[in-house]
Design a protein around this nucleic acid. Sequence first.
RNA 1: GGGGAGAUACCCAAGCGGCCAAAGGGGGCAGACUGUAAAUCUGCUGGCAAUGCCUUCACAGGUUCGAAUCCUGUUCUCCCCA
Length: 410
Amino acid sequence: MPKSNAAPALSPKEQLEVLRRGVFEIASEEELLSKLTASAASGRPLRVKLGVDPTSPDIHLGHTVVLRKLRQFQDLGHQGVLIIGDYTALVGDPSGANKTRPILTEDQVNANAQTYLDQISGIVDTSSLEIVRNGDWFRDLTFKGVLELAASMTVARMMERDDFAKRWAAHQPISMHELLYPLMQGYDSLMVRADVELGGTDQTFNLLVGRQLQRDKNLSPQVTLTMPILVGLDGKDKMSKSKGNYIGVSEAPGDMFGKVMSIADELMENYFQLLTDMPEPDYRKILSAANPRDAKVALARTIVAAYHSETAASAAAEEFDRVFSRHQLPEDMPDIDVKRASLENGAVWIITLIAEAGFAATNSDARRLVAQGAVTIDDNRIEDVAAKVPLTGGEVLKVGKRRFGRIRLV
RNA sequence: GGGGAGAUACCCAAGCGGCCAAAGGGGGCAGACUGUAAAUCUGCUGGCAAUGCCUUCACAGGUUCGAAUCCUGUUCUCCCCA
């Protein structure tokens, strides 16, 4: 991705218009407009805060929705402030969680933080980004300080929060330390003097706490801008690693393409809006195409191109067409190394072959796949779990629709 | 602090001494159909070269010919009272 464009000096109103894309809610637009106006007048960029939790080293398209919004602010000449929540990660954000999250160690957090930065460098302009860790201020906060912070919130208000309320109603445990999370996040806003804070809609409560703490200190409260939660590949739940319904930004072009192709049709508009820069009239036109499949191909190409290249996107599209539409073999497939010494009379038990190729987790799993007719070698279906298959090298093992490999004798 | 309820496979949830590798649903996987969409139908869903054997019903012991089921202790959770 290109670096931030030199601000083309859009008027505050024009900026607001750009920033509105895909947004769920801005609290409030009037405040944002007046901040943008003040910024334009003074030449002081707005400080736009985004807090991230370095709990998982893999970032996926769901994370990019908010990162892309941050990028928009940067492109408009504002100052991005990224908070690595190294301390908050020690707590574990309860947002959207229906159970207490595991607490990470400091070492894990540090490792994750670095990977995180590497991965977002393609999305936001990291060179101009102000990066801070909230451990910098929390580490030295005294217990007295914690008590003061805690005194600024009541239990009743905290329990208004959707996820706490749900867990409470469902008789599920809520640990004391989880109640501190929103306060910590709000305190971050205070520390970095945020003008705007970005987050997913699941962050709404936390973002509002920041406003309250700022008001308590007689500071101008931050504008909160919430983005919709990206629905994952299953078409139902929030895209998340734990659900396994995600597309990682560092996935290979082919995987990324295929995953986009597997989303529900209804999700396409949403994905165009939140994951691409394509102007609305353009994607609307694409969506009106006769065959929804064509629109999805366009979407997949756009997304792959953004994280890889146009060339990679074209190649992925061709490969996809060849393998899944025309049912031909993929151009590249992994080698399955089989030791000559392991062959008996030049053959190998089909179950071992599948398991050792990594196409099944266990032998039992491999048996099931064979029994269900999922396994072919050079297009010959193998349905006998006791089958010994003769190998001379070069055979293609296919398990299910997407697991391919070429036998190589070593 | 006192009293009560509970912990079952990826998730929810039945089971209440042998017929339990454990009903049902969800999810997932596979097959058919297809656009790697949706919907639908079918099968599978602890491990093991496997008509059998091994490990699993929070953890550790115990009773019994036999325990997910009964007893004791431990850990954790929820509810009520204080």
